[in-house]
């Protein structure tokens, strides 16, 4: 049951590169900490897809297990990150990272 045929690996690599770049762009472009965080998730997502594509082409389950770990870590990161965001919001009433300028002097 080989589902995918005729799509070269390069296509996947390019797709993942573009997704990753979009994520990075978002991190730089947006000022809302929450959205930045989402863009980071997008980047991780691109990595996951790349790993899976490689896994399929190498016939190697290792990469899929790696993806598994990335997902686990992403989940842990999200829990901590959102807790931090909530803490910041409690004190500043904003999630705009430009509003956080206490440390610039």
């Amino acid at each position: 049951m080989d589902i995918i045929k005729g799509v070269p690996l390069t296509s996947y690599i390019l797709l993942c590169s573009i997704l990753f770049a979009i994520g990075a762009l978002g991190v730089l472009y947006r000022r809302n900490a929450l959205v930045i965080f989402m863009c980071i998730e997008l980047m991780l997502n691109a990595v996951n897809l790349l790993m899976v594509a490689f896994s399929r082409y190498f016939n190697d389950s290792n990469a899929q297990v790696f993806v598994f770990f990335i997902m686990a870590v992403a989940a842990a990161e999200v829990s901590v990150g959102l807790a931090i965001l909530m803490m910041v919001y409690r004190n500043t009433k904003t999630t705009d990272i430009d509003a956080l300028s206490k440390l610039k002097y």
């Binding site: 993942c16 900490a33 991780l44 990469a63 990150g81 910041v88 990272i97 206490k102």
Partner: peptide, 28 residues
């Protein structure tokens, strides 16, 4: 302290993303 935490977190996660992409390409 809040700001430090948030910045550290965002930057750290961003770096993690880059690290992972690098690892993926090395794997590839």
């Amino acid at each position: 302290s809040n700001e430090a935490s948030l910045k550290y977190f965002l930057m750290g996660s961003f770096a993690t993303g880059i690290l992972l992409f690098g690892i993926a390409l090395l794997y590839g």
